[in-house]
Every structure is written in C-alpha cells, then in structure tokens.
Amino acid sequence: MPNTSTYNTFFNLLKDSINNATFSKLTLAKTIGNPDLRNVYARPILIEDKIGLSITLKLQEEEQVNDYNLDEAIFILTGYINNPFLSAILFTNDADIFMKINKKKVATISEQTPTFKNAHTVIVDFYANK
C-alpha cells in the first residue's frame, strides 16, 4: 500500500487525541463515484472500561452502527479510505486534521483550526473518572 506511512501517521494522531483527551469525532467523506455508502462517522464509546469507537455507516436509505475496540475500528476505517472515500477528518479540540487522497492516489495530511472547543463527553468523562 503506497500510503501506509501517511495512514499510520493519521491513525496515530487519532490514538494520540484519544490518549490526550482531545478527540471529538472522525468522519470519512468525499466519495469516488456515486456509491450507496455516503459517509462514515466514528465516535468514542466505552467497551469494557476502554475507549473504543462506534462506527456509523450512512447509506442512501439507512444507517448501520457497530461498536469496535480501537484497533478493530482503525482496521475497519482503513478499509474505507480510497474505497470509496478520498478524505478523512479527525476533529479534536486542538485542530481539525485532514487526510486527503489526490487524483494520483497520494495521501497528504493538513491541519486547520479546530471546529470543536471540547473533546467528546465520553472522552472527558472517561479521563475524569480515572
């Protein structure tokens, strides 16, 4: 996989945002063509006293929601990048981090000022009770 290093960097930033209690959500968007799958959203949940991700697949007519531990979630999300999604956005209260795949199939990471001022309440509560 030619973008392995960039994918690893992006998902390490996801792990860091969870460990540093800054994670809000993650979204996959900008599809190739017109697939039935429109968006993928990942939000934090607690699974056996650990942070996992609830992944919502937004289809044209319905939504499917599944819960995964963090490593499983990253594996699932990676499978959707470039198939059919060309961008992933990691929302933290430090920055919005974008991973985009261009027409030449090269992935790049950039940052913008944060959309959210606070981490997701699951993250905040988890670390407040540790």
Rank of each mutant, 00 (worst) to 15 (best):
K105R: 15
N34T: 14
T9S: 07
I81N: 03
D49Q: 15
I81T: 05
E61F: 09
D49G: 10
F116N: 13
P2Q: 15
F75N: 08
K117G: 14
F98T: 11
E111Q: 14
Q60A: 15
P114D: 11
I97W: 02
I47T: 06
V122Q: 13
P114Q: 14
N39P: 03
N34S: 15
L57G: 00
D96K: 09
I45N: 07
A107D: 07
K50W: 04
A128E: 14
H120Y: 13
T115V: 11
G52L: 08
A42T: 00
N118Y: 12
T6S: 06
D67C: 05
G33T: 13
K30A: 08
V124W: 02
P84M: 12
K25R: 14
D125I: 03
P114N: 13
L90F: 08
A128S: 14
V40E: 00
L46W: 04
D16Y: 01
A21Q: 07
T6P: 00
S54K: 09
I97A: 07
K15R: 13
N93M: 09
K100S: 12
K50D: 10
P2G: 13
Q60I: 10
T4M: 07
S24L: 03
K100M: 12
I32W: 11
F23V: 02
I109K: 02
T27Q: 01
N20Q: 09
F85W: 03
K117I: 12
F23Q: 01
T9A: 03
T4W: 06
L28E: 01
F91G: 04
I109M: 00
I89R: 06
V124K: 07
A88K: 03
K15W: 06
D16V: 03
D96T: 12
A107Q: 05
K105G: 11
D94K: 14
I109A: 05
L14G: 02
D49H: 14
A119E: 06
I47G: 04
N12Q: 15
F98Q: 09
S17I: 09
Y41P: 01
I97K: 08
M99N: 08
T9L: 05
K104V: 07
L13K: 11
L53C: 09
L26M: 07
I123T: 03
N82K: 13
D125S: 10
N83S: 15
I81F: 10
T27P: 00
V106P: 02
I97D: 04
T113G: 12
N3F: 04
I18C: 06
G52M: 07
A107W: 03
T108Q: 15
L14I: 05
N82A: 14
F10T: 02
F85A: 00
N39E: 11
S110I: 12
T92L: 05
Y68Q: 05
F75H: 04
L90G: 06
T115N: 11
F85N: 00
L46G: 05
E111T: 15
H120C: 10
N19H: 08
D16L: 06
S5K: 10
L70H: 10
I18P: 03
N82R: 07
N69G: 07
